[in-house]
Design a protein around this nucleic acid. Sequence first.
DNA 1: GTGATTTGACCCGC
DNA 2: GCGGGTCAAATCAC
Length: 280
Amino acid sequence: MSGDTKLKAIEELVRGRELTNQLRDLLSKSAGYESGSEDLVIKICNTFANSLSILRNPNRDSGDHSEVCQKRRKEMRCDGRKPEDWGELHSSKTSPSGSDSTSTPKDRREGSYKSRKKESARKSISSALTDDGYAWRKYGQKQILNSIHPRSYYRCTYRKEQGCLATKQVQMIQDDPPKFESIYLGPHTCKNTLDPSQFILDHPISGDPSRILSFANKQYNPFFSSPNQESNEITYNGSSSSDYLSTIDPSAEMSVLSADQDVISGFEDSVQDLDELLDF
DNA sequence: GTGATTTGACCCGC
DNA sequence: GCGGGTCAAATCAC
């Protein structure tokens, strides 16, 4: 990330923090989420969306970002694996369409599953499943030893079209309160991510809410099966600002606008992490 | 009809 | 040999 870009991001985050403080004051004076605070929330969402837009530029894996990740994450590493490494992981596989129709399943799988190291895994824990702005497609589920809940496996929807090799694993690690562990593997090389700022501009708050919660992968998502979770609950991994930035998503931002006081409190908590981020 | 999820089987690393 | 990650046919939902 260039210095100018970083400065812009910082400016946006600072502004977001200020607006959030105002919102906090406003909410502290009112019992609920009143219409007067809506404009502020919209501004906050736009601000954060802009920041995300900047931070999520194509060069996000550049040195600056890596430095931030190393600084901000102690346990959770940035994804330092090179795309070619992930290409190596799957390059030996033949495409389904191009595979020999006469070959057996065993033949098609020959040479796969190489180099399944988790060195560059990014771990995120949240109390609810939130969309992370990427389109994921579930490709497997497995019961894990010594785990009550099965682990779900997702890959980028645009894997075929754009060769994006990003994958993630989601597993419920605690029932009450519910906690989900998401492990992100591989870099996103696709360009079909949902741009938060554009998303908000295209879907104003005053518009049809049903349009807001429209994501490529929400259908069939087992963790979105509960309407409560989908629309009302937002929690970010408070252990890492970088992860916050990497996991905040339009659905979360939009959910803030229709959420109750508890959700906004959680939102405030997550924003407090920005204080740390601003240190870099 | 199309696209996403489910699920049993397969494969690999330890 | 076991456990975890992935594949792909079958199934489901829109």
